[in-house]
């Protein structure tokens, strides 16, 4: 059953097209990821799902109800955590939580089981002003406040941006526990490797959805052969291979290059011979693609 349904969503800001013909179906109790680089339109899409932004055209249905006509109803079933920390910095941890509980007509006690795991870690700081918390703690508090009214849907905009690797892992674990409570989770992130945390993801680029599927299926649908290349002269090789017409794409991946090709030829040999002419020694091996390779590939096809 689709409990969030987006039909032909379009949104422009002035002459900039932020979203173009977005169609999306998110199932109940699904952990859904919106993945794309900065400026892809993730935040715009999330603000439309939370009914904070009205699209130029297209419809949003939540639990089969038109979201914009019934936005007051939506407020009670959606928990939203904005990308920017948006709680009152001059109120304490407890006061923030108390405030959001009361405006939702509930109490901390009533839904404590939902936030217990997260809140126990915040409890030693409960009298501290929210503005004085560390980044990871702020994020936990924001999550608690978004959950305090026991929402059916939890929508998070880039929750892991600017958070250290350990806290990030911890955060995904927290979300996974919430998923087990039956909460449908929609999360956006610019980090491709975080796609694997989700049940299904939508890859977004320039306001368009490139593909929507499980992370496994996206990787499996990668049709080309992929090689990893390592060299002392990485950047030089990159510049040379970019103009080498026997490859379909070359991408810099940290300390290595990823080369992709459609041909069934012996790519290892061809590339090595090509770079030999420029007196560059390389190590090449065939590898399995990750989400980021798929994203790059889809992006190229789209252009």
């Amino acid at each position: 059953m689709n409990c969030i349904e987006l039909n032909n969503i379009n949104k422009s800001f002035g002459t900039i097209k932020a979203l173009a013909d977005i169609n999306l179906n998110i199932k109940k109790s699904e952990f859904f990821g919106l993945i794309g680089p900065d400026g892809a339109g993730k935040t715009t899409l999330i603000r439309i799902i939370t009914t904070l932004l009205i699209p130029d055209n297209g419809k949003v249905f939540i639990n089969g109800i038109s979201a914009f006509k019934n936005f007051k109803q939506m407020r009670k079933i959606i928990g939203y955590m904005p990308g920017k920390f948006s709680l009152y910095q001059d109120l304490s941890v407890e006061e923030n939580l108390q405030f959001f509980a009361t405006v939702f007509g509930t109490t901390i006690h009533e839904n404590y089981h939902l936030i217990e795991d997260i809140y126990v870690r915040l409890e030693p700081f409960k009298n501290r002003r929210a503005g004085a918390l560390s980044g990871g703690m702020k994020q936990k508090l924001a999550l608690c406040c978004a959950l305090i009214h026991k929402p059916e849907f939890l929508i998070l905009d880039e929750p892991t941006t600017g958070v250290d690797a350990v806290s990030r892992q911890e955060f995904w674990e927290m979300l996974n526990r919430l998923k087990k409570e039956g909460i449908t989770i929609v999360v956006s992130t610019p980090y491709m490797n975080e796609a694997n945390q989700c049940d299904r993801v939508a890859l977004i680029q320039k306001g368009k959805i490139l593909q929507t599927d499980t992370p496994e299926n996206i990787v499996a649908s990668y049709s080309k052969k992929l090689y990893s290349l390592k060299s002392d002269k990485l950047y030089e090789s990159y510049k040379l291979l970019e103009k080498f017409d026997k490859l379909s794409a070359v991408h810099l991946f940290g300390q290595e290059l990823h080369l992709s090709t459609n041909n069934n030829q012996d790519t290892t040999k061809i590339v090595r011979e090509f770079l030999d002419k420029h007196k560059i020694e390389v190590k090449i091996s065939e590898i399995k693609p990750i989400i980021e390779d798929c994203f790059m590939d889809l992006m190229l096809n789209d252009e």
């Binding site: 407020r75 928990g79 948006s86």
Partner: peptide, 13 residues
């Protein structure tokens, strides 16, 4: 400025 209006806007206030 602090962005708190965003959080208020998703409450039933």
């Amino acid at each position: 400025e602090m962005g708190t209006i965003e959080q208020i806007n998703v409450t039933p206030i």
